[in-house]
Amino acid sequence: MKGLEELKDKIHEILPDLDLVIGWEQGYDGLHATPLFIKTPEDVDRLIIGPLCVHNLATYLPGLKDKKVGVIVKGCDSRAVIELLQEKLINKDNVVILGLTCDGVINLTKLGRKIGSLGAVDDVKVEGEKLNVVIGDQQHNIAFSEVKQDKCENCIYPNALVFDHFIGEPVDRVENVGAEHQSLSDFEGKSFDQRFAFWKHEMSRCIRCHACRNACPMCVCRDHCVAMTRNPHWLSQENNVAENWMFQMIHVMHLTGRCVECGECERACPMDIPLMLLRRQMNRGVREVFDYEAGIDAQNRPPLLTFKVEEDNISEREW
């Protein structure tokens, strides 16, 4: 991500007309960024951009529907904004989009595996393809590509797809077009029993903390989530594989044709459950059946949010 100064100038310019601008600032240590809600010109100084800025800030938009909001988005985040616009869950007149170009963001779990403890990181610097992690007087030099988020590996949308102001120069990722994520074929290489055992194990680890749901930009039901209600009573409070699995499947089904693969669910999961595997599989189905990708064009209708007597790719009749 480049253009921090340009971005700050732009925010100073637009802030007077807005209630707030959402960006990132340095968190409680050198490793974590945290969302920043800019309301005054002084707040702008705290803004950062870079590989630590993992959060999809579009998640905040539906909750700020009545305010005039500026939002800073990476390519993947911008798809969530588009999807929210498609579903009329936000009003474009109330949103100013500041689009960035992105080289990938960090996966703390992967980094943790490299350096052991994540507890006392003082600073993280990007030096070309290297990531320099400073812990006290220790220095770790790690290839950035090894600790990027999974979604960054075959990213084809590094630039914001929708924006009012674009910061920096757009970059190209055409080499990734059409590539499916490695995890899909790896998973499919397993036998049915192995796959079943895999998910049974993963789902036994789910603690139903709902972090995946709360981080998801498309989970807009908030207090009315079907996972919490007793009427209809889809899920009990019991924590077991069946109920956990049901919850995760409900989340996936509700995202059918809507998921933009921003990966926030998996990033937010404290148990590191590979939730994106479910979403990638489902999105592949949507591509095959509906020839559709979510969050690309604000004018498109998500395939499951419309009614057609005859689907183009589902032949129910002979004519």
């Binding site: 579903e87 009329k88 869950l89 807009v220 039901c221 908030r222 009315h224 209708r301 499951l304 949010l305 419309t306 009614f307």
Partner: peptide
């Protein structure tokens, strides 16, 4: 929640 997905479908 007034998302009107039902209206669309």
């Amino acid at each position: 929640i007034g998302c009107y997905k039902c209206v669309e479908t």
